[in-house]
């Protein structure tokens, strides 16, 4: 498979995963009473596999779909900026890419909570732990999906 075909498949996989993540995030609380940050996870993992413009496209598409109000907010800014930052930083990370992606997922979720509910951050520690746990599992699964597609 040429690198162009591989890149195209990864890009479409990212698009599909972002849509699936959006569906999961918007409907998860109907059953489990909380909403894991699946979209942020999908974008962070995508940052390890996509080109710059591909990532920008997927990030902005996510922001357009998930934004619930007609203005920007801290939550949407972090959703957009953190994956882009991960894209530039990942080349400096030591160790295995899958492990680095999990670190970035956990960090991204902490930053999201800290920036939005700074005053009640400690009160929400149980919710944050639950969110991070579910998101790490989700992140690990989709990272492996990307890897399988990349090496196919």
């Amino acid at each position: 498979m040429t690198r162009v075909h591989e890149g195209g498949r990864l890009f479409f996989l990212s698009l599909i995963l972002v849509l699936i993540s959006t569906v999961l995030q918007l409907n998860f609380d109907d059953v489990f009473n909380f909403r894991p940050d699946f979209v942020l996870v999908a974008l962070i993992v995508s940052a390890f596999f996509l080109g710059f413009f591909e990532l920008i496209f997927v990030v902005l598409l996510s922001a357009l779909i998930i934004n619930w109000q007609p203005i920007l907010s801290y939550e949407i800014l972090i959703l957009v900026l953190w994956p882009i930052l991960v894209y530039f930083l990942n080349r400096f990370f030591p160790g295995k890419a899958w492990f680095n992606s999990l670190i970035m997922i956990a960090l991204g979720i902490f930053i999201l909570y800290a920036s939005v509910i700074f005053r009640n951050f400690l009160d929400s520690s149980r919710l944050i732990a639950l969110d991070v746990s579910v998101c790490l599992v989700f992140g690990f699964l989709i990272f492996n999906l990307f890897e399988k597609l990349k090496t196919k």
Binding site: Q25, L26, F34, R35, D37, V39, I66, W68, Q69, E75, L112, Y113, V116, I117, S124, L127, D131
Partner: peptide, 9 residues
């Protein structure tokens, strides 16, 4: 209802 807040906060 247009939309609902998509996060946990």
């Amino acid at each position: 209802v247009f939309s609902k807040y998509p996060f946990n906060f």
